[in-house]
Design a protein around this nucleic acid. Structure first.
Lengths: 235, 235
DNA sequence: GCTAGCATTGACCAACTGGTCAAGAATAAG
DNA sequence: CTTATTCTTGACCAGTTGGTCAATGCTAGC
């Protein structure tokens, strides 16, 4: 089934050293599989491809996406896209890698020293919901990947992500132990926040269909989730 | 992009009348596109196909699924599968249609006369979580479809589903108005229940990766969600 | 055990997809 | 202007996929 990328770990492996030009030989193939684009035109096309890839991949997932669609969306031919990226998988992995940090930034900012812990968590919830509202494509991209069994993120989950969550779980556990928030399992609290906020991006169609026209899902969600988490966390 | 199935509404349209045998003419093609299987062997193969289809469709979604894989999983050849169903889409729609009722049954049972409203809702949450644990493939199947933009369920969302949710939202609103549960937006309460319970099935890989080995996600989730919703709903 | 219709499948086809390649167009450096 | 390098793409290829069809195996009723 799989070709030959079994223990390839996908994302994490992309940011190794290798500063110099790489493949100085002729070999017309793709210029910069790993390096950042150098010239003006390279940067433009590189960005256009990733933007188009976000659009296409986030709609129906990896399998339904075609490099033809991505290339068309980026305003270029398929061979031209493959001049910048060696394969469809490479585009996907580069995209995921470049988005992961942004996507996890709000959790990174969750800090032990931030005033009232309840407000600190509420701020995280609000930020996360705002990201669902303003970056639904990113949310759906990750949702597709996880739902597919994370075959391309792979170890990124059990290494980087787990480490970050474990770290923040300790902070939350500290708050709970000191009675500054109601007792709660920190990991599952984080799952709940992810689940509830991303639901409004990932299942947007369902939410809108059920609510009917003339309602603003994200505005209502902001109120609802603040109530929910405030009731849940206030000691 | 789409072939020619724009206003086709998918699921709802499948259960029209047409009791008789349909297509009495020779025409070797698929026996019962609409009818239930008649003979012993028809029923066996019909069921095997739908079971296999659930397996394959739920893993990577509609696009990544192939009728070859489904046929192999069902222990038959591709033409044989296409003898029972006219197309890949038909298999998918039949599957969704046959599962939708089961999937929504717990919500159907949510009743105004059921003792304490908080316990009634908690029972719904527990049942829904149990379904995620015991029927993760069904959960993922629906998740894929909604995430894809519900192109094959189509109107089912804004008609049948909306009607059911609106009905139950009224019940919940009544409970809130009479002070038997804390004030809450009924629609968003239902979204929260769906989101939190199905999260453990749809994002199972992520949950397990973050929790690490040796933990039981669904057992922990049961405790966590009971706490969450009890705190949220107790007046 | 015969036959009519049900069940099954190998072979096939057209459309599509990921990826290659050689040749030409644009561009930057001298 | 020249030219070495970078960009760009039409044409092409091999593999896959949804779906068809004619031929054959099988079963039920007689």
């Amino acid at each position: 089934m799989r070709k030959a990328n079994d223990a390839k770990s996908g994302i994490g492996a992309a940011k190794s050293g290798m500063a110099l030009r790489a493949e100085g030989k002729g070999c017309h193939g793709h210029v910069m599989s790993i390096l950042e684009p150098r010239t003006r035109i390279q940067r433009k096309n590189h960005d256009a491809i990733l933007e188009a890839a976000l659009d296409v991949f986030s709609q129906k997932g990896f399998a339904a996406a075609t490099i033809d669609k991505i290339a068309a969306e980026a305003g270029m031919s398929k061979p031209n896209l493959l001049y910048y990226f060696p394969s469809k998988e490479a585009v996907f992995e580069k995209l995921m890698g470049s988005l992961l940090a942004v996507w996890l930034a709000p959790l990174q900012e969750l800090d032990a020293e931030g005033g009232d812990p309840v407000e600190e968590i509420l701020r995280y919830v609000a930020r996360k919901l705002q990201m669902s509202a303003e970056m639904p494509r990113q949310s759906r991209l990750f949702a597709h990947e996880i739902l597919d069994g994370a075959p391309r993120i792979g170890d990124g989950l059990s290494s980087d992500l787990k480490a970050l969550v474990d770290e923040k779980a300790k902070v939350i556990a500290g708050w709970a132990a000191s009675g500054r928030i109601a007792p709660v399992d920190p990991h599952h609290l984080i799952f709940s926040i992810w689940s509830l906020t991303q639901h409004y991006a990932d299942f947007d169609i369902q939410v809108r269909a059920v609510l009917g026209p003339g309602r603003d899902p994200f505005q209502e969600a902001a109120d609802h989730l603040e109530t929910l988490f405030r009731r849940m966390l206030t000691p």
